[in-house]
Structure formats: C-alpha cells, structure tokens
C-alpha cells in the first residue's frame, strides 16, 4: 500500500516526530511504500541540519535523513510554514537575502500542494501532531 504521513510538530518537544518515524519504519518493514512525509506547522523544524542533540540521545533529523536515503522516502517541508520558522534551502536563502541555509540532507522545501497531492496519491494518509 502507498502511505502518506504528515508530521505537525517539531522534534523533541512532542513525541509526534518519533511516532511518525517508528510508524514509517514499521510500514516499510511490512512492505508498504511510504510515498511522502510532509512536515507542516512546527513539524518543519525536523528539517534543520543544525541540531546537535547529546551523543547518547537519538538524532531525530538524522533518523529521517537515513530513512529517506535507505527507502527512497520523499521528505517535504512546507515552504510557507518553513519561511515563518527559519528553515531555508540554498535557493530560498538567496531569494530572501539570508546569509545561510539550514535544510538537512534528504529534505526538500516545497508547497502545500505536495500535501494535497499526498492525500490524492496515497492509499492512506496518517497525521502525527500535538
């Protein structure tokens, strides 16, 4: 089955991103396709590469980045939500006149249409949030 996942909260404060990650891994283990993970609201904060969690703690951003690489999962950060919260890729940083970008590998910034498209294309859509 083709699954879409929505993550509405950032890492660490809420369990949402962890739950979504465990769900995605389990789905892939069962042979489902995780077609897209869409990060919205504070969920866009999962997509910064600048987090430095303590060594003995899980690295939520790295978990996602590795999952994307291993299982070809499309990690999409909502552009409107990302702009509000300071998540930028190289293009956006240039376009907005900012001196740096911070998007993590495996993540891409795109529009809300990608969320609607996930709803249309996926057989099931599951949301994780606060």
């Amino acid at each position: 089955m083709k699954l879409g996942i929505v993550v509405n909260e950032g890492p660490y404060t809420h369990q949402a991103s962890d739950s979504a990650y465990q769900f995605a891994k389990a789905a892939i283990d069962k042979g489902h396709e995780v077609f897209r993970v869409f990060f919205y609201h504070d969920g866009v904060n999962n997509g910064t590469r600048l987090t430095v969690p303590p060594q003995d703690e899980r690295n939520i951003q790295k978990n996602w980045t590795e999952l994307a690489a291993q299982s070809n999962v499309d990690l999409v950060v909502c552009i409107a939500a990302a702009q509000r919260r300071g998540i930028l890729d190289e293009n956006e940083a240039k376009r907005q006149g900012k001196d740096a970008d911070n998007i993590a590998p495996g993540f891409r910034i795109s529009g809300l249409g990608q969320l609607i498209e996930a709803g249309i294309e996926a057989d099931r859509l599951v949301t994780f949030g606060d």
Partner: peptide, 20 residues
Amino acid sequence: IDYGGFVDLVAECDRTQSWL
C-alpha cells in the same frame, strides 16, 4: 499492538482521523 500492528490498522481501515 506494536508499530507493525498500527500499520496494519491503518491499512485495514478506509481512513484515519487523528484527534490532535
């Protein structure tokens, strides 16, 4: 259930409503 069971429930049901 475990996370795998969660995945099965999502697949078995026609839709998921998350009460956030």
